[in-house]
Design a protein around this nucleic acid. Structure first.
Length: 817
RNA sequence: GCGAGAGUGGCGGAACCUGGCAGACGCGCUGGACUUAGGAUCCAGUGCCCGAAAGGGCGUGGGAGUUCAAAUCUCCCCUCUCGCACCA
């Protein structure tokens, strides 16, 4: 190890000093005119100590926060914990530790680690979503939604995890299994609370277009999740009963090609129709099986499976009588749960038709071809000319879809419709460790909101976590029995708690008004700090957390509580830290912990290792970049050279700095500024390394390097905050923290080199490189190029037909042939 | 299947936005220096091929195109990663 640089001696000292100085507190001074910058990191879940993924995310987020402060912004960089959730309860069951005990112990552990890492958090704004003072306002917000009709209860088929004994949102079911424990999810009919996010589907979709600073893939995921489809609703009639049944279709231009009709297996009309058609005996097994599989379990379903119901539907456009089926490939959760099937022009319908012997009727003919329904081998979904379709024969499609819809409307047989894939947000959980839903069920008054002045509805502490049966709150002997806030009669509390995504949908507002007692936040505080300047976190939250937070923001805007409709205009997703090509996990035994590296080499080295490894959004393979844990990391050696160079510059005092170093310093300032603005930490670090090398050359030559040393130290501060502070205050003898210094500025005149390398090409191939004055004229440049040895050689015996000159960078001689 | 992104030395990556010296910076490796030998440090070299050298040829997944000039722009293909996936 270098004799001069020993992180273990430097870093703990500054942790203490920074805390004593209150260095990272966001300023609320009325006279503070600096621009505000809200640097937000996704708040962590306190499951054990911080892992490498946290180290990466927070190294990037901290670099942004520190950089903005050095650029002169008044920075808000808060921290808190997303502290409710199932793992705390599982720990209670497994180890007997009460959820709060387990949770707060982990939070303290993570907080200590954050401090050791030197994160520039404003600790005075710290929050934990499981604090009663926090969930009081989660409940308060729920009641605002409730009052607006945006929180409602309905009986609904839900995903039920038998292991966790709770309801799951569709989003928490992955390939039919519980996202958390992996058990196969079942379907149950229960009464649950929902947020009416579907009311906001169009706005959520429209505003995706305004999020130009988000990663494209996240925008795509948001759009897909919302899933807007344009088409028409068309009403068919059941021939045997006269019952009307509406379907949604994006292809009303193929209505005349419908040759059968399909209901979702769970469709409420299925049993009645099957009994009428005399087919219930065949249909019943399908229905039974559907009840036992999750709502989103699509793996098990055979796309061609289905049963004829024995009844028929009448196509409203041509009166055709077509058979009705029940089939799992039609989903109850999308559209109306029933479809018209057009096998000629939809592959799924085609496969089903061939299996079940239903006729195929082509109504779109591609140019230059004639499709025959009897001989087609696959559906034709492309464009063409409409045939066999009454008034629309000969019309082109898809251009005629609008005309078909207009016709349907004028005939009263259907109308244009827009359908979304997005479902309402199922937010109730039959769990203990969450914010209780602040509703009282009264036999007289119904669902009654707990009055605001009685919030929070606190969680009881004497709770039985034995698995199975009712949730711990429902099972509690006394907790739920209360007087109705409205009539005073006997009533019971709602015993469900809220999905933790509710907690995380508003925490960034709370940071703006820490400790505020009259509401979740002060509107003027939020409008002063928000929207967020930069949001940093994992791409695993690309859909749910971000969608829900956007939804909350729009609702709060509508309530007049915030003055903007998008909370996070700029989003940055860090890549994952993996090991040897695989994600780190306990079962693989390949976990690399951040703290041992910090203890051995220092937090700065860990940060630099991560940030220098590659683009922030890319995955990092720790095995490839750090290799052997005992090997001294390259960035640590660099920090040693930085200390040597800065120390050497100080020793050399005011000695003149060579022109090359001065220019290098200014170019580095420009380059690093550009890089930091674009979060290109890896190239910023490489430029600082180049500057370090140039300083060393200058010092070796007996020259000075003091202004370079100062610039280098400030630019290092966002990336290696401890080393920069040590250099600044100890080596450079500054009185105040480097983290309160000003970002260096550059002189554009010094960016330009006075001599540059002129590239000499012949026919576009590099034949020589010669130094030339940067202000050389075209004439001079061509002359110098022509005289170069490389050009002489290559031009010998050739006739130059054209000269392309881009002085002073390049001259290209084009020769005959 | 649909959508998005990516393919550059032994390795991580840079240059792509804005066409003009490919391989910055670092790791690794090779040779050397200094040493009471280190978890070092310093110096030199390091894309591939031919050559003693000078120099030359080749080179950014493959193929075409545009251009005086393509890692960069356009089109086609291949491979990989991620996301979505019966959405009517």
């Amino acid at each position: 190890m270098s004799r001069r640089y020993d992180a273990s001696k430097i870093e703990p000292r500054w942790v203490a000093a920074w805390e004593a100085e209150g260095l990272y507190r966001a300023s609320e001074e009325p006279g503070d005119e600096r621009p505000r910058f809200y640097a937000l990191d996704m708040f962590p879940y306190p499951s054990g100590d911080l892992h490498m993924g946290h180290a990466e995310a927070f190294s990037g987020g901290d670099a942004v926060a520190r950089y903005r402060a050095l650029r002169g912004d008044n920075v808000l960089h808060p921290i808190g914990w997303d502290a409710f959730g199932l793992p705390a309860e599982n720990a209670a069951i497994k180890r007997g530790a009460a959820p709060p005990t387990w949770t707060y112990a982990n939070i303290e552990q993570q907080a200590a680690t954050f401090k050791r890492l030197g994160m520039s958090f404003d600790w005075s704004r710290r929050l934990q979503s499981c604090d009663p003072e926090y969930y009081r306002w989660t409940q308060w917000l729920f009641l605002r939604f409730f009052a607006k009709g945006l929180a409602y209860r309905k009986a609904s088929p839900v995903n039920w995890c038998p292991t966790d004994a709770t309801v799951l949102a569709n989003e928490q079911v992955v390939q039919g299994a519980c996202e958390r424990c992996g058990s196969m999810v079942e379907r149950r009919d229960l009464t649950q609370w929902f947020f009416k996010i579907t009311d906001y589907a169009q706005r959520l979709l429209d505003d995706v277009d305004t999020l130009v600073e988000w990663p494209e893939r996240v925008l795509t995921m948001q759009r897909n999740w919302i899933g807007r489809s344009e088409g028409a609703e068309v009403t068919f009639t059941i021939a045997e009963t006269g019952e009307e049944m509406t379907v949604f279709t994006t292809r009303p231009d193929t209505l005349w090609g419908a040759t059968f009709f399909v209901l979702a297996v769970e469709h409420p009309a299925v049993r009645g129709l099957a009994e009428l058609g005399g087919t219930w005996a065949q249909v019943e097994p399908l229905v039974r099986r559907a009840e036992q599989t999750s709502l989103v379990d699509r793996e098990a379903a055979d796309t061609k499976e289905g049963v004829f119901l024995g009844v028929h539907a009448v196509n409203p456009v041509n009166g055709a009588r077509i058979p009705c089926f029940a089939a799992p490939y039609v989903l109850m959760g999308y559209g109306t749960g029933a479809i018209m099937a057009v096998p000629a022009h939809d592959q799924r319908d085609f496969d089903f038709a061939r299996r079940h012997g239903v006729p195929v009727r082509a109504v779109i003919q591609p140019e230059g071809e004639t499709l025959d329904g009897d001989t087609m081998t696959e559906a034709y979904a492309g464009e063409g000319v409409i045939v066999n379709s009454g008034p629309f024969d000969g019309r082109p499609t898809p251009d005629s879809i609008g005309e078909v819809i207009a016709w349907l409307e004028s005939e009263g047989r259907g109308h244009g419709a827009i359908n979304f894939r997005l479902r309402d947000w199922l937010l109730s959980r039959q769990r203990y460790w969450g914010a209780p839903i602040p509703i009282v069920h009264c036999p007289t008054c119904g669902e009654v909101a707990v009055p605001d002045d009685q919030l929070p509805v606190r969680l009881p502490e004497d709770v039985d976590f034995t698995p199975g049966g009712d949730s711990p709150l429902a099972r509690h002997p006394t907790w739920k029995y209360v007087a109705c806030p409205s009539c005073g009669g006997d009533a019971v509390r709602d015993t469900d708690t809220m999905d933790t995504f509710v907690d995380s949908s508003w925490y960034f507002f709370r940071y703006c008004s820490p400790g505020y007692q009259q509401g979740p936040f002060r509107t003027e505080d939020v409008n002063r700090w928000m929207p967020v300047g930069q949001y940093t976190g994992g791409v695993e939250h690309a859909i749910l957390h971000l969608l829900y937070s956007r939804f909350f923001t729009k609702v709060l805007f509508d309530l007049g509580m915030v003055g903007f409709t998008e909370p996070f205009p700029r989003l940055m997703n860090q890549g994952q830290v993996i090991y040897d090509g695989a994600s780190m996990s306990k079962s693989k035994g390949n976990i690399v912990e951040p703290m041992p590296i910090v203890e051995r080499w220092g937090a700065d080295t860990m940060r630099l290792t991560i940030l220098f490894a590659g683009p922030f959004e890319d995955d990092i393979d720790w095995k490839l970049i750090a290799g052997d844990a005992d090997k001294r990391p390259g960035v640590h050696a660099w920090l040693g050279r930085v200390f040597a160079a800065v120390g050497g510059a100080v020793a050399r005092g005011d000695a003149a700095e060579p022109d090359a170093l001065v220019r290098r310093t200014h170019r580095t300032i420009k380059g690093v500024t550009d890089d930091m603005d674009r979060f290109r930490f890896n190239t910023a670090i490489s430029k600082l390394m180049v500057l370090t090398n140039e300083m060393r050359s200058a010092l070796d030559a007996g020259a000075g390097a003091l202004s370079a040393a100062r610039a280098l130290t400030v630019m290092l501060a966002p990336l290696a905050p401890f080393a920069a502070e040590e250099l600044w205050r100890v080596e450079l003898g500054q009185a105040t923290s480097v983290h309160r210094a000003s970002w260096p500025t550059f002189d554009p005149a010094l960016i330009v080199e006075d001599t540059v390398t002129l590239v000499v090409q012949v026919d576009g191939k590099v034949r020589d490189k010669v130094p030339v004055a940067s202000d050389a004229s075209e004439e001079d440049a061509v002359a110098i190029a022509r005289a170069s040895a490389g050009a002489q050689r290559a031009l010998e015996g050739h006739e130059v037909v054209k000269v392309i000159a881009r002085p002073p960078k390049l001259v290209n001689f084009v020769v005959k042939n």
